[in-house]
Amino acid sequence: MADVDALFTEFKAKGARIRQAPTNFSWGMREMNIEDPDGHRLRMGAATNEPSDGVPLCED
């Protein structure tokens, strides 16, 4: 995924259940987390060199 932020904006505009907005993680990824209508959680991400946001991964 080249642009997680653009994907986030698109999903949000369509009313998707956003579990975690795009976040920079310490493992060098910028990831977002959504839930589909069947309750499956999907993580999408792209590599980044930006520092971590210091936010834990939303896994609840």
Rank of each mutant, 00 (worst) to 15 (best):
G54C: 11
I34Y: 06
L57V: 11
T9H: 03
F11M: 05
L42C: 07
E50Y: 11
N33T: 09
V55R: 14
F8M: 03
D53W: 09
R41N: 10
K12C: 02
L7M: 13
A21V: 08
P22D: 04
F25K: 02
G28D: 13
F11T: 00
N24T: 14
A47V: 14
F25E: 11
L42D: 04
M44N: 01
V55C: 04
R30P: 01
P51N: 13
T23C: 13
N24Q: 13
M32N: 01
G28W: 06
A2N: 10
E50W: 09
M29F: 02
S52Q: 09
E10H: 05
P56K: 13
N49Q: 15
D5H: 05
A21T: 11
I18N: 04
K14A: 14
T23R: 06
G45F: 05
N49C: 02
V4C: 02
F8D: 01
N24I: 12
F25A: 05
A16K: 04
A6M: 05
V4F: 01
G15N: 12
S52Y: 01
G15L: 09
F11A: 06
D38F: 12
K12M: 02
E50A: 15
N33P: 00
A2S: 12
G28C: 10
E35F: 02
P22C: 09
S26F: 13
G28S: 15
F8S: 03
